[in-house]
Amino acid sequence: MQFGIFTVGDISADPNTGKAPTEQERLKSMVAIALKAEEVGLDVFATGEHHNPPFVPSSPTTLLGYIAAQTERIILSTSTTLITTNDPVKIAEDFALLQHLADGRVDLMMGRGNTAPVYPWFGQDIRQGIPLAIENYALLHQLWRNEQVDWQGRFRTPLQGFTSVPRPLDGVPPFVWHGSIRSPEIAEQAAYYGDGFFANHIFWPKEHFMQLVELYRTRFAHYGHGTPEQAIVGLGGQFFVHRNSQEAVRRYRPYFDNAPVYRGGPSLEEYMEQTPLTVGSPQEVIDKTLTFRENFGDYQRQLFVMDGGGVPLKTVLEQLDILGEEILPVLRKEFASGRPASVPAGPTHAALVSRS
């Protein structure tokens, strides 16, 4: 079981001070969070990809390459890489190059994104979002596995005898997760290729995501990749922790009300009731996270978001200390308890090489 954190990289003013970080300050804070994540023993750091304010991480491989040079162990990933508006050739080459520089500590999550204007900015039509995701990934899958690719599709110019460079490290492409908050077609795509499926269920009631994960598991088995229990599942989550539950709620409420992804929606209490969001003591975070296995079965990767809505870097680093010291050891022990030997571990480059 892998544990980590992900960031959407929003630039939001701290509601307690009214001060917002500069773009450089926010990017440097994301680097500091990644380094702290490795220090406290987490397995994964992931960054989103956005091309519009108030978000700043428009070039994930640049950011992750910079982090790779300063870390030794942590897996570097995305949450997500826009498969609809990026050229599959560029994705293939960027992430293979990052693989080499990071000694294989790289995977990525494919997604369509949730910002409609991004499509025309990159010459695409949002009404073709699903067909784009399917066709572009089919090409990317070939580019990483075939030395020479001949390709013709609907959405880009044909390729003839094309070789993407560099080739994947050790001949093994980065592991791919397909992320979705709403689309059964993406769960089907993940199952078809035998890739991972990541349900970022921080926005919707859990029942919706339970259906998506069950669909993915069933179709994973249908395509002959293993039993439903052997499908590779990742989940999102979010928490804000303090040793006193009431104090946690008091401190976090301004950030929740300020966050661009939550603003104007249900109340903090409603979100805590219907989603993985936990605001409370370390034990409450542990108890809520352990319910995910009851809802989704044994799974491989749990990522938390901790830095949205203007939460200052100092506070995020304090939260990571509590996660590493008090929460993570218990979660590792409890998730390992009773886990069937047939359930795969979280994907790593070394494991993929050994199976190739």
Rank of each mutant, 00 (worst) to 15 (best):
G111T: 04
R112I: 08
R112L: 04
R112H: 06
R112W: 00
R112A: 02
G113S: 01
G113K: 03
G113L: 03
G113I: 03
G113F: 04
G113T: 02
N114Y: 07
N114P: 02
N114M: 05
N114F: 08
N114Q: 09
T115K: 06
T115I: 02
T115Y: 08
T115V: 04
T115M: 03
T115L: 06
A116P: 05
A116T: 06
P117F: 06
P117G: 08
V118S: 02
V118H: 04
Y119H: 01
Y119L: 03
P120R: 00
P120T: 01
P120E: 01
P120G: 00
P120M: 05
P120I: 01
W121I: 00
W121C: 01
W121P: 02
W121E: 04
F122S: 00
F122K: 00
F122P: 06
F122N: 01
G123H: 07
G123F: 09
G123N: 08
G123M: 05
G123K: 08
Q124H: 14
Q124R: 15
Q124G: 05
Q124D: 06
Q124F: 13
D125S: 06
D125A: 10
D125H: 12
D125G: 09
D125E: 12
D125P: 10
D125T: 10
I126F: 07
I126A: 05
I126Y: 06
I126L: 09
R127I: 00
R127G: 11
Q128R: 13
Q128F: 01
Q128P: 04
Q128E: 13
G129L: 03
G129E: 13
G129I: 05
G129P: 04
I130M: 13
I130K: 12
I130P: 07
I130V: 15
I130C: 10
I130F: 09
P131H: 07
P131A: 06
P131I: 10
L132T: 06
L132A: 07
L132F: 02
L132Q: 09
L132N: 04
L132C: 10
A133S: 14
A133Y: 09
A133D: 11
A133R: 10
A133T: 09
I134Q: 14
I134V: 15
I134N: 07
I134R: 15
E135K: 13
E135S: 11
E135Y: 10
E135H: 10
N136H: 15
N136V: 11
N136L: 12
N136S: 14
N136F: 13
Y137W: 15
Y137G: 10
Y137V: 12
Y137I: 12
Y137D: 13
Y137H: 15
A138C: 10
A138N: 15
A138E: 15
A138W: 02
A138D: 15
A138K: 12
A138H: 15
L139F: 11
L139V: 11
L140E: 14
L140S: 12
L140A: 15
L140H: 12
L140C: 13
L140G: 10
H141S: 12
